[in-house]
Design a protein around this nucleic acid. Structure first.
Lengths: 221, 221
DNA sequence: CAGTGCTAGATAGTGACAGTATCTGGCGGG
DNA sequence: CCCGCCAGATACTGTCACTATCTAGCACTG
């Protein structure tokens, strides 16, 4: 099909399709002439995936490109999962303009907290992992806000996180022999987060409601 | 203290402090003269909170303002929790330029899935809740990508989400009599998500590693 | 075989967002 | 009394994700 048809079937404007190609998220069509190219189902599928990653998944164009590059390079199941896991952006990052002196001390303490947690959970992750860094930053932030960051609490959350990860991996493993394994794995790894966040918020809402004396119910803003 | 001192103790540039004031995230200082105002600890605290919400929490300035407004208006514990819950942005939103005809059908199916889940979980939430809408959009997306969205799976995730929400609310409830209840509640509700996401990613990483044949380990890109 | 319509690829423009910088008076205090 | 900092307003900057325009050049229709 030609680009205008691709645009019509996916609902993505032609200009955007061209943009995604420029940015390397979408492979070029098979050129049939100097000014004409043929697109196929794989382009339709890819556009869907791009849309899902950027809107629902909340990824930036650059992050989505990295993830999709990992998808395209993938060979083995395990390698794919690992590559995708590292290609996904870390939600919490060290701000480059951090303070100098005493902050380092708080950062050290936070890193120690993280290391303790990882040991307690018997997690096998290198402490160079961006997720470890991110968690340290987040804990440091929480600590500075005098929030409750005690090890017992953390472990409780971590146990639940482990259960969720198990569900995720189970879903991914079920795809072992799927031809589109990498695509599906991306969906599982990248879109579980937002879905879970929604479920958590829903559960929070339910529990807040149950605690509430139902004054002005059912009229959320 | 004056603005330059506030800037120094928090590490936030003077121009940014003024910006946050303009945008209504930070209350004005107590004016001592036409060209001078006095700032206190509450401003220091507020700036910390702003930083946490926007960086770690990933909120936009506008979203942070909404949340902080809810914090400032808060009276009762329950009212505060509810207000904050609704002030937090929903991670997945219906894109306004959605397709017309058949998409409605898929949207209906997705909404039915969500309704079924909520019934199965016995969650008391109005279906006008933005979280319900968001979940419907997310499920619709997953369905379109041929992902595994079967009820059993969803319920499994939902059960875990419930456990997490319980932990969250427990933390918030522990603050009942805290003078800065609203602030702490915000921290709990807004920063649990990113923290949990990090923990989940860590757990994922661990499990991927355990499944892997440790070829080129410990060298993550 | 001429004309219309679509195409690729390049380049430029847009609007939102999150600041950052500058400017204008006007005090404050050593 | 005058140098330096302040408040408030306005203007500017850089990034992001598109969106629009421009320049050619075929392709298919009549």
């Amino acid at each position: 099909m030609k680009i205008s048809e691709l645009s019509r079937t996916t609902g993505v404007p032609v200009a955007s399709i061209k943009y995604f190609r420029r940015e390397g998220l979408l492979p070029a069509g098979r050129a049939t002439a100097a000014t004409l190219a043929e697109y196929g189902d794989e382009h339709v599928q890819r556009l869907r995936l791009i849309k899902a990653l950027t809107t629902t998944g909340g990824l930036s164009i650059a992050a989505a490109r990295d993830v999709l590059t990992a998808v395209d390079r993938s060979d083995s199941t395990d390698g794919t999962l690992k590559a995708i896991s590292y290609a996904l952006p870390v939600p919490v990052t060290q701000s480059p303009g951090a303070d100098a002196e005493e902050e380092t001390e708080a950062a050290t303490a936070a890193r120690a907290d993280v290391a303790g947690l990882i040991a307690a959970m018997d997690w096998q992750v290198p402490d160079t992992s961006p997720h470890v860094q991110g968690l340290a930053v987040a804990l440091q932030e929480l600590r500075r806000l005098d929030a409750d960051y005690r090890p017992e609490r953390l472990v409780a959350y971590a146990e639940l996180a482990r259960s969720i990860a198990r569900l995720d991996l189970e879903r991914a493993a079920a795809l072992e022999d799927s031809p589109s394994l990498a695509e599906q794995a991306v969906v599982v790894l990248a879109l579980s987060g937002p879905m879970l966040e929604l479920l958590r918020r829903l559960a929070q809402e339910d529990q807040v409601r149950r605690r509430t004396t139902f004054e002005d119910d059912d009229t959320p803003a």
